[in-house]
Design a protein around this nucleic acid. Structure first.
Lengths: 243, 243
DNA sequence: TGCTCCAAAATTGTTAACAATTTACAATTA
DNA sequence: TAATTGTAAATTGTTAACAATTTTGGAGCA
């Protein structure tokens, strides 16, 4: 059972990429309807491939289908954010642990993750959304080191979710965070390369916890109080209300 | 962002259900090609809905798409099995922990899980595949108590995987296992209803570990030795080679 | 025999027309 | 006025024909 990439990108996937981009760029906003005819007019194809692209985006959770009533762009909320970070923390831990074992047997190919790290360094200080994107790409590459296809795929899905959150719930990446973020990334990678399972997993879970804390920062006190009532906050993230 | 069921089942979904069933029943075996025209002849629809159903099954991992070359039924292997159990263990733990919190606030609706438990009891002793199916349904209902839509969805996907494993890798359910299996199920459910997070999560992880052990039983010594070399075996399942 | 190339067959990819369903809105009725 | 019904417009769902691609199998040739 393999999950390797298809021999070459298909039209529907290219369309899905463009529509996804349009959603993330804000061309289509949460609640907006995606009408097949309009899309096929815009993108210059027939409705068939558009339909396929819409189904693809729906399976990512980016849009919702309603029978005979078309698709609308999904609107994320706080619960979604916490659930997504919880998934990334727990599945990521398994993948990283697996990667450490592979490293001990010298089977780890780090070309991709190194490339993504270089791209992330280059993206820092530039456009905030490009930076988030580079950040997510690096993390995905990190998790891919585990060579666990289902976990990788689920993880990739959560990356799309986070792109949506960043766009629509208004994450802010502040200057101080960037260097710390990259430092934490490198720390996890180094621990994997040392083959130290406990250290790598520990750094990873802390990294996610810190990400959650940073994610909350831009919100109002009322919203933060609301966030702290969520069970995931205590159980998974072990975050204390430090304010 | 909601993940509720669509207002009513669509044709493509019904087709996907039928094709999935045909794969699990063995009509289509791993490696077999699924040809759109053949399927549309068999099921009496045009190729459009069939294409949609094929894409759906591909996103479940049940079949693989090859550009311009059609779909083939996927063949699972041992690594897939371990990865799937690891996912069920870690995401299930989060969902169960969440369910405990909900229970403490009296927000837990147990009608579905109770119904599935009754169905499981009724299925015991009958057809082995029906029993596995009832077992998986109960576990899904258990995880749904967590009200975490993404985790529930990913968990459901792994249920499809396990159905495939059972069919194609030859799990055996023996009489002694059934009662123990149900007893472990009920224990987890009871712990959730007590709102005891640590107890419920502990029982759950042990339950999965036991499932992995039982899964290995029918295999030859050579295969088992191979299984024990997998890192997930030690890291996640903490299974000792007791033979 | 074993290799290359070409053509035909098989199969998926795309399109546009048609069917079915849902929504919107105006006309009708209590 | 408020509710209801009916009709037209908008939109998705389905189909069948056509296009593009890949596979298959054989002819020709060294």
């Amino acid at each position: 059972m393999t999950f390797e990439a298809l021999p070459s990108a298909r039209t529907a996937e290219l369309l899905a990429d463009q529509i996804r981009e349009a959603i993330l760029v804000g061309t289509y906003k949460p609640g907006d309807r995606l009408i097949e005819q309009d899309l096929s007019d815009s993108f210059g194809t027939s409705r068939g491939p558009i339909r396929e692209a819409i189904r693809l985006l729906a399976s990512e959770g980016l849009i919702e289908l309603r029978k005979n009533r078309g698709a609308i762009v999904s609107a994320p909320n706080f619960d979604d954010v916490l659930e997504v970070y919880a998934i990334r923390m727990s599945l990521g831990s398994i993948a990283i642990s697996h990667a450490c074992h592979a490293q001990k047997h010298g089977q780890l190919d780090t070309t991709i993750v190194n490339k993504k790290l270089a791209q992330l360094n280059k993206a820092i200080g530039g456009n905030a959304f490009a930076m988030v994107s580079a950040d997510l790409d690096f993390q995905t590459a990190l998790i891919e080191l585990g060579s666990l296809p289902r976990i990788t795929e689920t993880f990739q899905q959560t990356a799309v979710d986070i792109s949506v959150f960043v766009r629509f719930l208004g994450i802010r990446y502040e200057a101080a965070d960037h260097k710390d973020l990259v430092a934490r990334h490198i720390a996890v990678l180094d621990a994997i390369l040392e083959g130290d399972v406990d250290k790598a997993v520990g750094l990873w879970t802390n990294h996610i916890r810190q990400s959650v804390r940073e994610f909350m920062r831009p919100f109002s006190d009322t919203e933060i109080v609301e966030l702290f009532e969520r069970p995931l906050m205590q159980d998974v993230f072990e975050v204390e209300n430090a304010r």
